[in-house]
Computed example of a mutant assay.
Amino acid sequence: MITKPTILVVDDTPANLQLMSGLLQDDYKVKAATSGEKALKIAFTDPQLDLILLDIMMPEMDGYEVCKRLKADEKTNQIPIIFLTAKAETQDEALGLSLGAVDYITKPVSPPIAIARIKTHIELYRQKRELIESQRLLAEEINEAAIYIRSLLPLPLEGKVKTSWQHIPCSSLGGDALGYHWIDEEHLGIYLVDVCGHGVGAAILCISAINAIRSQSLTDTNFKSPASVLKGLNEAFPMEHQNNKYFTIWYGVYRKKNHELIFSSAGHPHAILFTGSDLNNKTLQTLTSGGLAIGMMGDIIFNETIVPLNNFNKLYVFSDGVYEITQKDGKEMNLDDYTQLMKEYFSDLGLLESEKVLEKIKSLKNEIGPFDDDFSLVELIINAT
């Protein structure tokens, strides 16, 4: 059974109330009020009103005041109000519309015109409520997706391998994800994915890629071989099947037995490795293999590189959103600037400093507020003993 829309008619003249009720009763449920106070009481206690027909000239509280109060309360401020009055001056109509009314019908009422306008505004209000509800549901789904992405982020590691990370999406749903996990007792996988764009599409692709890595579900893929992983991802996620979206990735494996790192990357910024025989003597290496992003082209050959590690090592893997900022001097930071910054401030081989990196980058931004891109950074300290 279809529920009739509910209209509240407000007029201090009973004859006018009877006239409007007679016009509307076949298609609408009609409620009546003979004063502004009674109208407010009905409006504030009845959540089902679909429209209010409001007379202006009433004793004690006129229609303008009723309209102001309705628009000031969040429970009633969305209900469409049509002024129904004998006044026909242009300035009176302008005042009513400025207070939030959606239309103005003058007396004596022309039934066809009044009914047409009422029908139009009730339909618009219905569409508006449906839009608001769909936006609410979408916001809930986006929030659930954001929580899920957050749940994929790893717990800190302690011991010979220590970890820290920062992950701040620039919007509700970002396109970055990071992780690490022990593939077996001797091999630790380390990875960071950065999907082009943001929002639902980017998040879905990001989740799919990270889950494929975590669950080791790629076909014919050796997850201890970075080049094999990138090849498997490239075959699984061609951009023509992902709404023209692609992603960059840095993927490495720490080989515990040989105390070495093997890595490969696809269109991703280089990782930064600080390494030294002791805590005071260290060198910087940038780790990249270049190449195209995942999904851009089929049959790509990915290269992997082995890096021997020293007694003390610190690895930073990050997305381009970490350094692509406009600084307070107006200069755009680039990857070389960021690498130098890390060398000057964050090369202590004994300390996890990802949170300090985040605060430093925030302090250099020319504006307070969210980053223009997702900020994703994973830090690992890997010691021989």
Rank of each mutant, 00 (worst) to 15 (best):
V10S: 05
I113A: 07
K87L: 15
T120K: 10
Y345F: 15
A203D: 07
A202M: 03
L138F: 14
D299Q: 14
L124I: 07
Q285A: 12
G290E: 00
F237C: 03
C170L: 05
D329G: 01
Y191N: 08
L218A: 05
A202F: 01
I262R: 09
T283Q: 13
L23E: 01
A236S: 09
R126C: 09
N310I: 01
K360P: 04
N244S: 00
S265L: 03
C206P: 02
D337P: 02
Y180P: 01
T248K: 01
A43S: 15
Y345H: 15
I52H: 13
Q78H: 06
L230Q: 04
Q216C: 04
L287I: 08
D73W: 15
E186N: 13
L287T: 00
N366Q: 08
T90V: 14
E260V: 04
I2S: 08
I79V: 15
I147C: 07
Q285M: 12
M342G: 15
E123N: 11
K160M: 02
K68N: 11
E235H: 11
K282T: 06
T120C: 12
E89C: 04
I82P: 05
A236N: 12
P111E: 07
E367A: 11
S98Y: 14
D373F: 05
T45E: 14
D337C: 09
K68Q: 12
V307M: 14
L178E: 04
A145F: 05
T339Y: 01
D92A: 10
T13D: 08
V9W: 08
L261I: 02
I56K: 10
L131C: 00
I381G: 08
S217R: 08
K107G: 03
K360F: 03
D46H: 11
K282M: 04
T326H: 06
A146P: 00
E355G: 05
P308R: 13
S363E: 06
T34E: 14
I294S: 01
P108F: 09
N211T: 01
K282H: 11
I294N: 00
Q25T: 15
Y251G: 02
K224H: 09
M342N: 02
K365G: 03
Q18N: 15
K68D: 03
D220P: 08
F263P: 01
H121V: 06
A271F: 02
K119P: 00
K231M: 09
A236C: 07
I142V: 12
N211I: 05
I52G: 06
L157A: 06
D103S: 07
A101M: 11
E37W: 05
I79M: 10
G252V: 06
P112R: 14
V322I: 02
I105P: 06
I382Y: 06
F302Q: 10
T275R: 03
I118S: 12
I105V: 05
S289E: 13
E185P: 01
S289L: 12
I300L: 13
R136V: 12
G96S: 08
I249M: 09
Y246K: 03
A43I: 15
D73C: 03
H270M: 04
L53S: 11
T163N: 00
L99R: 14
C196W: 06
T85P: 08
L205E: 09
H268Y: 02
E185W: 07
K162Q: 12
T219I: 12
V357R: 02
D372Q: 11
S98R: 13
R136C: 10
F318T: 05
I213E: 08
V357G: 13
G36P: 10
S217A: 14
Y316V: 02
G369D: 13
